[in-house]
Each structure stands twice: as C-alpha cells, then as structure tokens.
Amino acid sequence: MSTVLTTCPYCGCGCGFYLHTEHNKLVGVTPSQEHPVSRGTLCVKGWNAHEMVHHPERLKYPMIRENGVLRRASWEEALDFTARKLQEIRDKYTTESIGFFTSAKVTNEENYVMMKLARGVFLNSNIDHCARL
C-alpha cells in the first residue's frame, strides 16, 4: 500500500489528507494530523473522498455527437474536431462569439492554462466560472 498527501476536493476549508492506494486503486483516506486546517479530523465528505473516483460512470473516453448521439472517439479525433470547429467559428463570426467556463473544481495550473487559452490564444476576455453559484 502506498500513501500520498493531498488536498480535499470538496469545500473551501482545504483539509489535507492521505490517500491510500493499492494496485492503482484508492482504498481509503486518513486525515493529516499536522495539517493546520484538518488537525487530524475531516468531515464525512472528506473521509469518503476516494470513493467517487472509481465510480463506474466515470467518463473514460472522448465522445463526439453524430446524428444526434454521442459516440466514442479517439483523443486525436476529438481534439482535431474541437480545434477545427473552434477555428471555424472564430473565422466565420468573431472570437467573441466564443465563451470559456473555467472551473472551481480543477487546479490553479489548469485554471491558468484555460485563462491563457482564452486571452492569449483566442484574444478573448469571455472567461468566467461559477464562483457565484
């Protein structure tokens, strides 16, 4: 079994806990005793934070809508399709006809590259997330 110290994915308290894994599978969570926020405790959401990761409904591959239904696609195909469509829309209308919703769930680094994609690549300030909701 191996353990990794990480940060809770739920509320804004930001508790620190250890994720326990066995053969690339999460088996449990224990709070960090020394972490200034969690101090050896967690709420029920934190204690169970590992479970949803292996839920069978996880999205496991890219999908593209065809004739009204989503079908499995390779990463190459999905990324090519997405990039081509975004370019077409930018060229046909304006870059401002595109919007970006970044996320309060993903990491800082991921938010940063999304922001860079909007502002730096699309020269577009239409970026927001649901902080308000």
């Binding site: 930001g14 996320s103 993903v106 990491t107 938010n111 300030s125 970026i127 997330h129 902080a131």
Partner: peptide
C-alpha cells in the same frame, strides 16, 4: 468560499476582468 478551488479559479484570472 464554497468550492474547493473557487479561490484559486479567481486568483488565476478565471474572471472576465482580471488576469
């Protein structure tokens, strides 16, 4: 802040008015 990284999404310029 309600979600784990709302603070971070704001800090990273995930808002229409700031970097």
């Amino acid at each position: 802040r309600g979600q784990n990284n709302v603070q971070g999404a704001c800090d990273m310029g995930g808002l229409p008015n700031v970097f």
